[in-house]
Amino acid sequence: MSIRPPTLREKHRYILARIEPAGTLLEQKELYYAISDATTSLWGDATTAIITPAVVALEYGHVVIRCRRGTERELAIAVSTVTACRDVRISLRIIAASGTIESLRERFRPKKIPKIKSEPEKTATGTDSGEEHVLPECSFAKKTFLVLQCNGHKVDVIEKGFKNTNRLFLTKDDLEDLNATTISDRI
């Protein structure tokens, strides 16, 4: 079967969305099902068939979703109703829409910074010397929490212990432990 000439091919658009909370591990297929389910639930089968949503990339905490040209608005509304992916609570924040995947990749790919010194990379525990990864602790509302994610002023924590595994979303100012306010931005 020969490939169709460009004028007869379907025109696509790509939507870039950031996955929140940061650091959530998802599979591309599961995310596709979540988006497809949200689209079908909101617009019905007929419109979803026109939109034809597809997850084409899932990298660096971002997802690139493909749709047919002219249906970006419908897809964006449907994407804003995605609240979970296989029992994991998530939220998709739409950043941009484009005609090519590559132009969207430029937006989220980390820029390469030339290393000046060849220092060992520091982690939460110290150095990458095969030590067990220990999350830093902090306290909030008279409870002890483990810091999962720290980005600028935003700190995501989880209560210490195995009973309560709900993530709390705090800021550095909320933390009562002074040491926690000096934790590294990269955990």
Partner: peptide, 18 residues
């Protein structure tokens, strides 16, 4: 009830169009 439940202004405009 969470930061995950919040939506940006553009999303809200889209949802309100419904």
């Amino acid at each position: 009830r969470s930061v995950l439940d919040m939506r940006n202004v553009r999303d809200i405009a889209g949802l309100c169009s419904l």
